[in-house]
Simulated assay, not measured.
Amino acid sequence: MIFPFSFSLLFTIAAAEEFSYCQSGADWDGLCEKGDAQSPINIITDSITHESTGQGILLTYTMIKAKGSFTDHNYQVTGNFVTGVFNSNNSDITGYGKQFHFHAPSEHTVNGVHYDLEMHSVQYNKTGSPIFVIGVLFQLNDKSNDFLEKVIDSYSIYTNIDLSEAFDGEEDLINFYYYQGSLTTPPCTEGINWFVWDKIQDVNQTQLDFFTSRWAGSSSFACGKGNNRLTQELHNRTVYRYDNSVILMLGVPIVALLMH
């Protein structure tokens, strides 16, 4: 399958808007309220379209010394961590990963179930508009996550972060869900290609507390709720499930192409 994508879509990123998670996004207006291709969604595994062959994403990573910070709405680490290319309508679409950030609990659900944490690696085009996002889900258990430990360390000091570690360092990433959606915060821009990896990652309680202590664990944030938007109606969209024959490759980045 060739991922659908339209160059006719106009991506307009408005200035940062004031919004709250007190109603988990139910009170957001504009496209957030009226759009019919919104994210996140509930992925129902017995109602998706399976693809055994198709296009993957060529991802090239570099290690970046970065410092994370809590924004008004999430925890974000900024830097040119990755370049991604996928084929759509017989054209290569290139995205530049300028930041990744976290939501707790997860924004996407699988069969109605939230995970404890979700990371979004956002990819932008050369003009600075988002074109696709790779989502990674984390589940609470006793195992420490080395990647998250570095992300947490980066809150205090500049830390060497290799985003490939979020994917277990694997060169061939397989088994993911794909659909067309939107940004999950205002202005909820649509036309975003979503790739949600279905290999669930570990997070231990101490690491999870780093995030939730600022969100659901804080009465001063969003009425004591997490920073996750409610799942949205699927409408006429199709959710695809890719198996082992769809490969995402990790490699060495072309630094000259990375955006600042």
Rank of each mutant, 00 (worst) to 15 (best):
I161L: 05
N228P: 01
V246E: 07
A26F: 12
F221D: 10
L163C: 10
K34T: 15
Q232S: 12
Q55H: 00
S88W: 00
Q207T: 08
F7G: 00
D29R: 04
I247T: 13
F102Q: 03
E171G: 10
E51T: 09
H50D: 13
S219L: 14
Q180T: 02
G84N: 12
V136H: 04
D168K: 14
D202T: 12
H120W: 11
D36Q: 14
S106K: 08
S39A: 13
P40L: 10
S39V: 12
F19G: 07
K150G: 04
H120K: 06
Y21D: 09
E33H: 09
K225P: 00
M63P: 12
L10A: 12
V110R: 10
G97I: 04
G84M: 07
F86P: 01
T238Q: 06
W194K: 08
I157Q: 11
Y242P: 08
Y124H: 14
I2H: 00
L250D: 15
T71E: 15
T83W: 03
S218D: 15
N236Y: 00
K126L: 02
I157H: 08
D72G: 08
A66I: 09
S154G: 05
F3R: 00
N228A: 06
S156I: 09
I13L: 15
F70E: 14
I157P: 07
L208N: 10
D198T: 11
C22V: 12
L117F: 02
R237Y: 01
H114D: 14
L258K: 07
T231D: 09
V133R: 09
G181C: 07
I2A: 00
S213Y: 06
Y115H: 15
N204T: 14
T71N: 06
S213W: 10
F195P: 01
E33L: 13
N227L: 11
H103M: 09
S220P: 03
S213M: 11
T78V: 10
K34F: 01
T53H: 02
S88R: 00
P4V: 00
K225T: 11
D27Y: 05
R237D: 08
P187M: 04
M249D: 15
P187L: 01
S245G: 07
G56L: 06
Q123N: 09
V133D: 05
I174S: 08
G35P: 02
H73L: 04
T127E: 14
T159P: 13
S20G: 13
S20R: 12
I57F: 02
H260C: 02
N90F: 00
L183G: 12
Y242S: 07
V246C: 07
Y96S: 09
Q99Y: 02
H120M: 03
E171P: 03
S52E: 13
I152L: 04
N160G: 06
T231M: 08
Y96I: 07
G226M: 05
V82I: 13
Y177R: 06
F167N: 12
S121M: 14
L250A: 10
E51K: 01
V252F: 13
W28N: 14
Q232A: 08
L117G: 09
Q23R: 13
R241P: 06
M63Y: 11
G217P: 13
W194M: 06
T189P: 00
M259D: 09
H235P: 01
N90M: 00
S164K: 12
F210M: 05
Q123W: 12
S144Q: 13
T109G: 03
S8T: 10
S24L: 08
L10H: 04
E17Q: 15
S106I: 04
T189R: 12
